[in-house]
Design a protein around this nucleic acid. Structure first.
Length: 756
DNA sequence: CACCCTCGAGTTCC
DNA sequence: CTCGAGGGTG
């Protein structure tokens, strides 16, 4: 029958996984999945005791023994815990306990985090750490004394503070060895720096670390430990769980944070949601909570079922990690052309949802984790909801897995994929790539951009596919007729959409700039541009001028470039080869050196010097200066560096983009900066520079205040600067102000000037 | 040149 | 939310 079949399956699976875990140290499923299988078997067996067989994993305690270590006999059995997966499970646990105890016995509890680490038993004799062992099979464990002694949070002698003593004659404590999240990350950074494979799972790594033969390796890794239980002792009397924790803390052990007393189970149940929501903010991994009967005598009276004491139970959180198969990798192209690989997974249920897709971030990461197509991979879904692949389970490889490489050609436009010099990511270089165009329009209408409601990705896709629009400019020419033809578009929906488009014509200039999707220009940079330029037209004319000046400069430099490329180029030219490269894209290389007035930066000086040696200086200086002058409106903006200036100029000087702008302008889309209503013009004609942290306002607020009164805020001090507003721990600008004799003022001075 | 900070871009599921 | 890149500063 079916049930019998299922229990057999579960038994076989579990036994195999136990073998993988304990003998091979190479588990192919996560602990959480193991727990699920185990729980299912346990439940079936409880309902149908006739199905229990001798080889059932429920009939023995798990074991982490390996052959390579001497063994230590535990003073008493190291028990595990029964699991609860719901509030009902907890309630029935308490009911059963109440039945076993004399009527009207009051039960109170201690709630502790269930740490996701490795159980160890440590024995102290007369206060000195003498033995440490892994849990093993619960009776006998591996002797890891030398390794445990390297864990800094475990005292070698107790009590740590002498006035808390004396230590009992003998005490064996139980605790959990683990990596703090930040330590585990640091360890992985070290691995990466050394070109070694990354560790996927903190718990398995902690286990491997503790079982190192060479304790120097253990010492080099930042393990930590929490101690939460006194297993056995001579010369110590404890009545409650709480006293036990207090005792451990007094002795100088780190006890699990947030281990608290609650008078009733209901109090604990109330805590569960809070505790679960805090899970991701903790510095260490926990996979649930442990609830213990506080009264140790009662707990003892309750006894043990199988290997689980009745006096405590583990409340397990839904799994955040699961393993599944990587069945494919799809290529995603963003509006900038950036390619991101996405994992296609066999559906897997993690913390409440079924996951089929997960980001793989980039191909570098895939390579460093050595993820291959067909691999069993571990997928994690943290509190932030977004699932990602944390690594492959190399133990379950069959050999048929294939490496994952970036595509050679864009799957949407067929263009060869490029990887810019030194970049991690790959790109489709074609701005007219259909996927990129779609993504661009999708971005254009999205919230934060032009915010056109009723135009989701699917609608955008359909409109483009039907040829109703070809770029974002066409949106403003939409008419009801073709829309009504579309599926699921009735009069009402069309009306709403058109109204929303109409509203989008009146967005502030900054929002329009953001929507254009210029590489590197988001909301913040768009604000900067909008406050410096009165309109899109000004941006275009500046960009055109810069572009022309840059072309003129390159033309002037081209004889030099050609000469340098000539195989017969002389030595002098070869020396200036690198500088010649800079001539190709003068904007990126030279422009930012000019922000502080007319001074020539050192890099430029070097270039000019080498050009002078070649006798080419004269004809280059004028075009260079012309270019700098043309670009001034952009480069004087603090926050814009060479790359952004380049991106902005390129975008606005582009014919195609200008076409889109023209289309939108024609349709009545706002292209002007909103007339700012000034509070006063007390600061008219003055230029301010801010430096340091102001006592009561942010830099933005101060800037706004200045601009509201007709003043200007710039990024750098020059002779033209009227005042330098100096806050706390000012930078070099204060010094510069002193050098140039520019007066400095405080926030209060400013407030006085505008009369606030 | 190395470091720190901020901004932008991309991402999943319901 | 996370990562990478750009910009600024010491």
């Amino acid at each position: 029958m079916e049930l019998e079949q299922r229990t057999r399956e579960l038994r076989e699976q579990l036994n195999y996984h136990i073998y993988r875990y304990n003998v091979l140290s190479d588990p192919i499923i996560t602990d959480a999945e193991y727990d699920r299988l185990y729980h299912e078997l346990r439940q079936l067996e409880e309902e149908h005791p006739e199905l229990i067989t001798l080889d059932s994993p429920t009939q023995r305690a798990g074991s982490d023994l390996s052959e390579d270590f001497p063994k230590i006999q535990h003073p008493v059995s190291v028990l595990s815990l029964a699991n609860a997966f719901s509030v009902e499970d907890l309630r029935s646990w308490e009911e059963r306990n109440q039945r076993l105890l004399p009527a009207d016995t009051d039960l109170d509890y201690v709630l502790e985090p269930k740490l996701d680490g490795l159980t160890v038993v440590i024995t102290y004799e007369n206060g000195i750490l003498t033995k440490a062992a892994t849990r093993g099979n619960g009776e006998v464990g591996d002797d890891v004394t030398a390794n445990i002694k390297t864990v800094r949070t475990i005292p070698l002698r107790i009590p740590v503070h002498r006035d808390k003593g004396p230590a009992p004659e003998r005490v064996s404590v139980r605790g959990e060895v683990l990596f703090f999240k930040k330590d585990f990350e640091a360890l992985n950074q070290r691995q990466e720096a050394e070109g070694l494979p990354l560790y996927v799972n903190a718990r398995n790594t902690a286990s491997g670390t503790l079982k190192q033969k060479d304790s120097r390796i253990t010492a080099s890794r930042p393990l930590s430990a929490f101690i939460y239980d006194v297993l056995d002792s001579v010369g110590l009397k404890l009545d409650t769980q709480q006293e036990m924790l207090d005792f451990l803390q007094d002795m100088g052990f780190h006890i699990p944070p947030q281990s608290n007393y609650y008078p009733t189970l209901s109090d604990i149940i109330q805590q569960l949601p809070t505790r679960e929501s805090l899970r991701d903010s903790l510095d260490y991994e926990i996979d649930g909570l442990v609830i213990k009967v506080n009264n140790l005598h009662l707990a003892n009276e309750l006894g043990v079922v199988g290997k689980d004491p009745r006096g405590a139970i583990a409340y397990k959180f839904p799994a955040q990690e699961a393993s599944t198969k990587l069945i494919g990798v799809t290529v995603n192209i963003g509006r900038t052309g950036k390619i991101t690989p996405t994992a296609q997974l066999e559906p897997v249920f993690i913390s409440g949802v079924t996951v089929v897709n997960a980001s793989l971030h980039n191909y570098d990461l895939i390579a460093s984790l050595d993820i291959r197509l067909g691999d069993t991979v571990i997928v994690k879904r943290s509190g932030d909801v977004i699932p990602y692949v944390i690594g492959p389970v190399t133990g379950s490889r069959t050999g048929s897995e294939t490496p994952i490489t970036p595509p050679e050609f864009c799957p949407f436009s067929g263009d060869p994929i490029i990887q810019p010099e030194g970049a991690v990511d790959y790109y489709c270089p074609n701005p007219r790539c259909p996927e990129r165009v779609f993504r661009k329009v999708e971005f254009f209408v999205s919230r934060g951009a032009m915010d056109i409601e009723g135009m989701g990705p699917q609608t955008v896709k359909t409109l483009i596919e039907k040829g109703i629009i070809t770029d974002e400019g066409d949106i403003f020419y939409l008419t009801p007729e073709p829309l009504l033809e579309l599926e699921k578009f009735a009069q009402k929906k069309v009306d709403n959409l058109l109204a929303s488009i109409e509203a989008a014509k009146h967005r502030p200039l900054a929002q329009l700039i953001t929507s254009l999707g210029i590489d590197g220009v988001g909301g913040t940079i768009a604000e900067l541009l909008a406050s410096e330029f009165q309109s899109i037209d000004e941006l275009i004319s500046t960009s055109e001028a810069v572009k022309q000046a840059a072309v003129a400069f390159r033309n002037a430099a081209s004889p030099l470039i050609e000469a340098a490329e000539n195989p017969g180029a002389n030595q002098l030219l070869a020396d200036t080869q690198r500088n010649i490269e800079r001539l190709r894209n003068p904007l990126i290389e030279l422009v930012p050196r000019y922000r502080d007035g007319q001074e020539i930066g050192s890099r430029l000086q070097r270039l000019l010097k080498s050009l002078e040696a070649y006798g080419a200086l004269d004809e280059l200086v004028a075009p260079l200066q012309a270019m700098i002058r043309a670009a001034q409106p952009l480069i004087r903006i603090e926050g814009l560096g060479p790359i952004l200036v380049h991106n902005i100029v390129d975008w606005f000087a582009d014919d195609f983009n200008q076409g889109i702008i023209a289309k939108m302008k024609q349709a009545g889309v706002n292209m002007e900066a909103e007339a700012r209503t000034l509070s006063s013009n007390k600061l008219e004609g003055m230029t301010f520079v801010l430096t340091g942290t102001l006592p009561s306002m942010t830099r933005e607020e101060a800037s706004a205040l200045i601009e509201n009164h007709g003043g200007k805020v710039t990024g750098s001090v020059s002779k033209k600067t009227s005042y330098v507003l100096v806050g706390d721990s000012p930078g070099s600008k204060a010094t510069k102000a002193a050098q140039l004799g520019v007066p400095t003022i405080s926030e209060n001075d400013l407030k006085a000037m505008v009369g606030v």
